[in-house]
Design a protein around this nucleic acid. Structure first.
Lengths: 201, 201
DNA sequence: GACTAATGTGGCAGAGTCTGCCATGTTCGA
DNA sequence: TCGAACATGGCAGACTCTGCCACATTAGTC
């Protein structure tokens, strides 16, 4: 089964991984903005030009191969939607993602720490979520009741809010790593509304 | 009272405004990525170097002088918090911002249309909100009940979610300008949770 | 084993954003 | 009127990213 991949693709994948490792390490040492692509590529033994063949942008070396973007979330979400409310389904879907990420806790906290040192990086991270949102909104939209005129908007709100909760939980966890578990942070984030807005019911 | 400003600052402000106008117009015509700073500055009769004295980055020419960043939201929020729940206070605060923005409806829809044509711009726009969040979170945090360990996280979630609702409402409005009013969109966005998550109570 | 095609890689030039430095002109207050 | 503060412009340079072409390696075929 693996033979079908061919050695070329396997080494290519390995190079992507090595680049990601080297880059993360250098970013931790000297900072993202202070580390030009030149240094990453030479540290990995390739030319700058080749770097841009593996990753379209410098940011991508951090974000491209991350779980939330590589896992098929629509499928997961569809499954949860069959037995949960839209909001709960989003909660569980992103909770599942968090569970998978736990196997790489160390890498994640390193990455989040790097991301939070640079404004441009934070923006790039947000863009990842915008892309994810475009995938999830069409899955949620048909499940919403109420007037069609507002359900399109509410689907957007639900998905973007869910990703915001997810993101906020992770940032908070990365900053207070010793005080709280990832999954607890995610659960607290997703249940904030039911606790904090009694008047709006 | 206005005399204290001095003509220099007044003309400087005028140049900022003119640059913003010229830039928005050019971005509409040729697109953001296809319009180099050279063209904006020459169209406004200044050198590229001087452009970067008025705006630190090319993005800033779109975002820097916008109401949500120039109005003092902390003050507004503090006032609402004295008689509303945190979530409702955030809702009303951003509703007030939306009301002020209505006087520039046309400019806003033009701007949002430009922003939504470029991924990098959308991310930059979100970053404006990240900065706002840093201002609002300390205002909300002391109002939250419950264990201190989770209230810091919940304050972050509430503020980021509020800004997400605000942002989503505006994007939706910009795309369906004829179907919905800004304030209605904002209200729908902010009341999405109370309607859509009965199970989580 | 040799040949061709596909693919990975590197170098080069160039556009575009943004910064530091210095020189020039204009305005303001004394 | 003179010096100080300020706005502007030009220049060089770093950095990201792209298009183009040349070279080498590999894969598949005969």
């Amino acid at each position: 089964m693996d033979e079908s991949i061919g050695i070329r693709e396997r080494t290519r994948g390995a190079m992507r991984g090595e680049l990601a490792d080297v880059a993360l390490r250098l970013f931790e040492e000297r900072g993202y903005d202070e580390t030009p692509v030149d240094e990453i590529s030479t540290a990995a033994g390739i030319s700058p030009r080749t770097f841009y063949r593996y990753f379209g942008t410098k940011e991508d070396v951090l974000f491209a191969d991350l779980p939330p973007t590589s896992v098929d979330l629509s499928e997961l979400l569809t499954e949860h939607l069959s037995r949960l409310s839209p909001w709960e389904a989003l909660h569980q879907t992103l909770r599942n993602v968090s569970e998978r990420m736990q196997t790489q806790r160390g890498r994640w906290s390193r990455l989040l720490r790097v991301v939070n040192t640079s404004d441009s990086l934070r923006a790039g991270h947000l863009e990842q979520h915008m892309n994810l949102a475009q995938t999830l909104i069409p899955v949620i939209a048909p499940q919403l009741e109420g007037p069609a005129s507002s359900s399109a908007l509410r689907a957007r709100v639900l998905v973007h809010t869910a990703l915001t909760c997810f993101d906020t939980a992770f940032s908070h966890w990365a900053e207070h790593e010793s005080d709280i578990e990832i999954l607890d942070a995610v659960d607290i984030a997703f249940t904030t509304f039911s606790d904090a807005t009694p008047e709006t019911r």
